[in-house]
Design a protein around this nucleic acid. Structure first.
Length: 724
DNA sequence: GATCGTTCTATTTTT
DNA sequence: TAGAACGATC
């Protein structure tokens, strides 16, 4: 700093945060636990570098994983130092797209490429292999995406790491070839292609490295192998590379995230300075202790322990309930109580592992008069009609885009059958031309209804292309993209088509189109405007405008809660087989444990955990056992909520759906000192028996191996009394 | 090319 | 249980 005077924006940082902001070494790993103010650190650091160190904002690159996080980062940095507007603050993928558009030639791409999402990829696989089922196509697309996440091209020797399938390499290679023919890229390409280009093209590499003197990465624990390779290429030894993350919150392994990126950061860059942020500003200590008790069972972690700055707080509470309906009723009861104590509905979040678990809440909450909102259910850009419009735009931008062409060419039906479409696609591939030219060609030989339909479609596209080229609306003024979409919806007959569907099925397709038109109403009617709009839309498929302000209970998957916080959190469905699933072991178990950790660290004041003895799954009723994660938690850290007394009723009585046939068996008694045998742990001695009201006694056993574990004998069959 | 009945299958999802 | 996907049928 220039003088002894500490600038205002640095005041209020704790010593570790301040150190993280001011540290000047080239490799910095900030291990930031949940709720430790990591966004504040990263944004303050950007502003600090610009303001105090006179780093050019343009030479700062900050990458995150979600658009929401990127936007927040930019706004907060600008709040401190307006010049930060010029910094490149983007998601990884949006940075990739930015980089690829600027260097399109080096990638052998036309400027007008658009981005295929996962569905489009699956469609492309289906195009190449029409005999494959939709499902298989989706699976292959997933594997291809995963291969790219791991940085593996089709000819990679170790492609077997992703799939052992003998045909996978061939399928992947065919996909790549066809994708290149369309001139488009997929999500994986946005990372892997820049990484590979920088690896092999020294001129571009050094030019890029000279530009970016500072590289910051948020949520680093979620980065994948390809992203790591990209970072390695972007960051010259002289550049400052600062990664911020929490190894305990890595929960996207199934999507290619590689915890080892953060675990081994110090090994890869030995000069790394490590700063841990462990002061938590969100939750009180009792919640943090429970969270720590969970995650400390993981072997693969750098290790850190959160310390609360907030005082007081009540112990988390565990409730063992009979079945889902009772679990829902319990949640309703908790929510109501919260309100009676002056809280709001919006303070409460109900967390679950699978989306399907929201169904019960949706069914019963109206009866309990509990307002709710579901986060992450159906996404705006996944809707049929929205995808149709986007396909139209994408095809307008890039007439080689086979997937988009197929989606709209015969919708609504214009009599263009599969065989005509195949002919057109084949002709385009044959002549290495685009689908418009190929259509013109095929139209010669066509006749009847199909010919007329194709002519209609072509004139529709021609009209749109010409107004895009002119950039003017009907009055001769500069036009907007929104109007183009609206015109297309009308002229193509799609709007009538949707209107009909809306009438029959009560959907809101027409409204959704209007919403999309609105979203595009600020985009200029030009090639650039079009590409920019498509990028924004394709790269931000987050659940649109769910009114966060509404006073309603939040229903949400544990995954979706990352980065959020709530005064009261209920983590439901803590049963073996559901969370974790039975087949999960090793690294998977550790990831699930981290997910549990993420879930409980969302709570600011109240934390509730629930498990059911019976769970309906795929229409069948199963007897379940408490999650192994529950038995791992030190019993001192939570209170057991007794449920042998009835869950207080909230007015609504349900039908006799419950499992009436279930009668708790009377198990033999358990007393301290008793010798027991456990399926996995062997012989042991009961050291303590705690009665509970609903779950039967809780038995704590010290095994000969030294391991201490606790059980509800009522729920486990693995623990047996040894007869004397 | 729409509609109906049968069959299958069943996490999580930043981009 | 419930939704999607596929094949058969009109």
């Amino acid at each position: 700093m220039m003088s002894g005077q500490i600038p205002e924006y640095l005041q209020g940082l704790n010593p570790e945060q301040l150190e993280a902001v001011c540290h000047e070494g080239n490799r910095l790993l900030i291990l930031a636990g949940a709720g430790t103010g990591k966004t504040r650190v990263i944004t303050t650091k950007i502003a600090y570098l610009v303001r105090e160190k006179h780093v050019l904002p343009e030479s700062i690159l900050a990458v995150t994983f979600t658009n929401k996080a990127a936007n927040e980062m930019r706004e907060r940095a600008m709040g401190i130092e307006p010049a930060c507007e010029r910094a490149i603050i983007r998601t990884f993928h949006s940075f990739g797209a930015w980089f690829m558009r600027r260097n399109a030639q080096a990638f052998d791409l036309k400027r007008e490429f658009t981005i295929y999402d996962d569905d489009d990829s699956a469609e492309l696989v289906h195009s190449i292999f029409p005999t494959f089922s939709k499902r298989d196509c989706g699976d292959y697309a997933f594997l291809i995406a995963k291969a790219k996440d791991y940085g593996l091209p089709p000819d990679a020797p170790n492609l077997g790491f992703v799939s052992q399938h003998p045909e996978f390499r061939r399928i992947y290679a065919a996909y790549e070839e066809r994708l290149r023919a369309t001139g488009n890229v997929d999500f994986g390409d946005l990372i892997l292609m820049p990484a590979r280009l920088l690896e092999k093209d020294e001129a571009i590499r050094s030019r890029t490295q000279q530009r970016f003197r500072v590289i910051l990465v948020d949520e680093y624990q979620d980065s994948n192998v390809a992203q790591f390779r990209l970072l390695q290429q972007l960051a010259s030894p002289e550049a400052m590379l600062c990664v911020v993350g929490d190894d305990d919150q890595s929960i996207y392994r199934f999507r290619g995230a590689e915890v080892r990126n953060i675990l081994s950061f110090q090994t890869v860059f030995p000069e790394t300075k490590l700063i841990k942020l462990e002061r938590n500003y969100r939750s009180h200590q009792k919640i943090l202790d429970l969270a720590h008790s969970i995650v400390s069972h993981n072997a693969s972690r750098l290790g850190k322990k959160l310390l609360a700055t907030r005082l007081g707080g009540t112990k988390p509470r565990l409730a063992i309930l009979d079945d889902q309906d009772q679990e829902i009723e319990y949640c309703a009861y908790i929510a109501r109580q919260h309100l009676q104590h002056g809280g709001h509905w919006r303070d409460i979040a109900i967390l679950y592992r699978t989306n399907a678990q929201s169904l019960g809440f949706e069914r019963l909450f109206p009866h309990y008069d509990i307002p709710y909102r579901i986060v992450g259910a159906l996404r705006f850009y996944e809707r049929e009609e929205v995808k149709d419009m986007l396909a139209f735009l994408a095809f307008l931008a890039n007439p080689r885009d086979e997937v988009s062409f197929k989606r709209i060419v015969n919708k609504p039906t214009r009599g263009i059958g599969t065989s005509s479409i195949e002919k057109i696609v084949a002709a385009a591939l044959q002549d290495d031309s685009d689908l418009l030219k190929a259509s013109e060609k095929v139209i010669q030989g066509a006749h009847g209804k199909g010919k007329e339909g194709l002519r209609q479609f072509l004139s529709l596209i021609e009209g749109a292309r010409s107004s895009l080229g002119k950039g003017l609306n009907d009055e001769g003024n500069p036009g907007m993209l929104g109007a183009l979409i609206a015109d297309f919806a009308k002229n193509s007959g799609l709007i009538d088509f949707y209107r009909g569907k809306d009438k029959i099925s009560g959907t809101q397709k027409e409204e959704n189109i209007e919403e999309l038109v609105n979203a595009a109403s600020d985009s200029p009617l030009s090639e650039d405007g079009l590409l920019e709009f498509l990028d924004t839309v394709m790269l931000d498929q987050s659940q649109q405008r769910n009114d966060t302000n509404a006073d309603a209970v939040t229903l949400i998957t544990m995954h979706n809660t990352k980065g959020l916080e709530f005064p009261a959190v209920i983590v439901t469905g803590l049963e073996q087989g559901l969370f974790p699933r039975n087949e999960e072991e090793g690294d998977d178990i550790e990831e699930q444990r981290r997910l549990f950790y993420v879930a409980v660290t969302r709570a600011k004041e109240e934390l509730y955990l629930t498990a059911c003895r019976w769970r309906r799954l795929h229409g069948r009723l199963f007897e379940t056992f408490p999650s192994r994660f529950l038995t791992e938690i030190d019993t001192e850290l939570y209170e057991l909520w007794g449920a042998s007394r009835q869950v207080p009723h909230t007015g609504y009585t349900q039908g006799a759906l419950g499992p009436q046939h279930y009668r708790p068996e009377t198990k033999p008694e358990w007393v301290p000192g008793m010798t027991v045998y456990h399926d996995e742990y062997g012989n042991g001695t009961v050291i303590k028996v705690t009665p509970s009201q609903s779950a039967g006694p809780l038995v704590i056993v010290k095994f000969e191996t030294g391991k201490v574990a606790q059980f509800f004998p009522k729920y486990t069959k693995k623990l047996e009394r040894v007869e004397h």
